[in-house]
Design a protein around this nucleic acid. Structure first.
Lengths: 347, 347
DNA sequence: TCAAAAGTGTTATCCTTACACCCATGT
DNA sequence: ACATGGGTGTAAGGATAACACTTTTGA
């Protein structure tokens, strides 16, 4: 939350009931080279947690989501204000945008401890087609799974799950008071697919939340010194609760591609079926059966061939397809159906 | 938004950048006697739109959702603050609560035109089991479809659709500038299932939004005098944009019952399969095929029989069932599947 | 000629839909 | 006896998942 001037002024001059600020945050997604990427900006540690609080001292920077405060007198809707901030900070003009979630826990911005306002953040999910060539100075694209490495099952179960997360969660369960143990166990099993439960790609937030509560995520150790020592925690951390927002966005997107044709917001106007499949796989984090995938999107009326072909695939030339807009009137919930049972990681 | 003291004070004493207030609103749902109901409180017209603005003069009251402002210094999460307000205003202690959407358009509270703060409302959806016998004074349960009568297809297409809405939307389309006409046509067809498109119960917000833009909803005539004269508009209106929130909530709930076992939040611990079916029908607004419904929930592992029976059904005694919690580990997305094609209104 | 990717065909199985029919109670 | 709602069985059709196999390019 780099734009502090207004916030500071508000904190200095006013009373209790006016110390509120609205933040607008964007999870901006693009997919290239089979990796889903999100856009981050750099924010200094100093601006985000006061020196006497953070373990790391100032000068250190953290990845943050593009962000901007809401000026209440600007006569504009929330999403238009967001678009403005993003254009200004990253040079990107957003297309598809949907509201994700509103985060309002007290002290989620630690500056509130020191007279800063209580910041309520309205987070948005934005999908964009290209990696714009030159985002502004401090903006950069990063692999989504660098922040949430346990979510990528395209090459089978990520090793980090068995090697670090599962044993640590075992310890966390063992440490729970007896009456809570069963509920906690059930929560963990359902979220992570342990003990015979299925891995549900959509439960991203539940997984992040459990890792947070178990202290397995660096962010959990920032506010108050945790009982367990951090050690090395899985995944790259972010400023404030931005990684939680990232997890929320991934879960939402994974759910939505199944019943609304949002994938096409991430693809060029024409694309090959394999290209489409790679994008869906990148987002859902699982491998799909090639032949069945083709038939599903084709028979599902989601796409139609253009008759043209591309020769740049490295093998036989692939036909180019387009999104079939008419599907919107024909089917109630058009999207890319994923297999219910997780297929083994093979093509 | 009935608690004005803080807001007024803020408006009088402070400057631009501090005139923000957070409101918390709840769509509280219960189902009894085959009708889905929501809880409303009364709010005077005077408090909601200044005298010189509203067509109706003061003394008139409108239905409003239970509401409360956020005190930024209360050390509590948003949903806990909401629970507090609801308990205080209606006497109900909420169980299942989920965040719905955040509404932040400028001037959505007309008092902003007269020095009031810009109010950002975070709306929640809450599900509750019983109609608590004595909700506080100004709180009352109302049929959800009284506000959105075009959404109830249990007895076939609501007459209001063909008689009033369809012709008025035709006029609205005809009045559109030529380049916009096609997009508008497509939007209307998809949302309302006209011209061969399917009726999708989940598109509640899109429908409300179209009716609003077309001036077919009383709320659209409150801010500025609309070009068309209101006439008689379908459905009971509400304060501010609360009916939009209602539409958002209905759509969300209709979607969610299909992949998460939330219906059981609305039912007692044990219930008959017909009772379950009636609740699902009440929410989704469509009739379901009895035999198939039973098999789906049963084979889907969603419920299990208790062996006990109830004799108060008026026919053969019905077995009582319970929610099968284990389904959460077994299936990735357990919910009540609805038929894809709308069945004709018959049992 | 071989690797790589595109694309086709077929089959067994499961799920959905629709229909017909029987069962147990109260009046 | 019959009306009312509860409950079961079964067969047709469609959607899925898992196979194996052919085609067309570049290196």
């Amino acid at each position: 939350m780099q734009n502090s001037p207004e916030n500071r002024r508000a904190a200095d001059e006013t009373h209790m009931s006016t110390r509120i600020a609205i933040g607008l945050e964007a999870v901006i997604v693009a997919v290239t080279d089979e990796t889903p990427r999100i856009l981050t900006v750099q924010s200094t540690d100093h601006a985000l947690s006061p020196p006497e609080h953070g373990a790391r001292s100032s000068g250190h920077t953290l990845d943050a989501l593009p962000f901007g405060p809401l000026d209440p007198d600007a006569d504009d809707t929330l999403d238009r204000v967001l678009r403005g901030w993003v254009r200004q900070q990253t040079g990107i003009t957003l297309g598809y945008v949907e509201q994700l979630y509103t985060f309002g826990d007290p002290f989620r911005d630690p500056r509130q401890h020191h007279g800063g306002p209580r910041v309520i953040s309205v987070a948005y999910l934005a999908l964009t087609r290209e990696l714009h060539p030159a985002p502004r100075a401090r903006a950069a694209w990063h692999d989504w799974y660098a922040y949430l490495p346990w979510e990528d099952w395209r090459n089978g179960a990520p090793p980090i799950l068995d090697e670090r997360i599962a044993p640590a969660l075992e310890r966390w369960l063992a440490a729970a008071p007896a009456q809570q143990r069963n509920r906690r166990q059930e929560r963990v099993d359902i979220a992570f697919g342990f003990h015979g439960a299925h891995w549900d790609p959509e439960r991203t937030l539940e997984r992040y939340q459990i890792l947070y509560e178990a202290g397995l995520v660096a962010e959990a150790h920032r506010q108050q010194p945790h009982d367990a020592t951090p050690g090395e925690t899985p995944g790259r951390s972010m400023a404030l609760d931005h990684r939680r927002i990232l997890a929320t966005g991934l879960g939402r997107l994974r759910g939505k591609i199944k019943y609304r044709p949002v994938v096409f917001e991430l693809l060029p106007d024409t694309f090959t079926l394999s290209g489409l499949q790679r994008v869906v796989e990148a987002l859902s984090g699982v491998r799909l059966h090639k032949q069945n995938f083709r038939r599903l999107v084709d028979q599902g009326g989601l796409v139609e061939g253009t008759g043209e072909h591309t020769f740049s695939t490295g093998g036989r030339p692939a036909e180019l397809y387009t999104f079939r807009r008419e599907v919107l009137r024909e089917r109630p919930a058009p999207g890319v159906r994923l297999p219910t049972g997780t297929p083994r990681a093979s093509r």
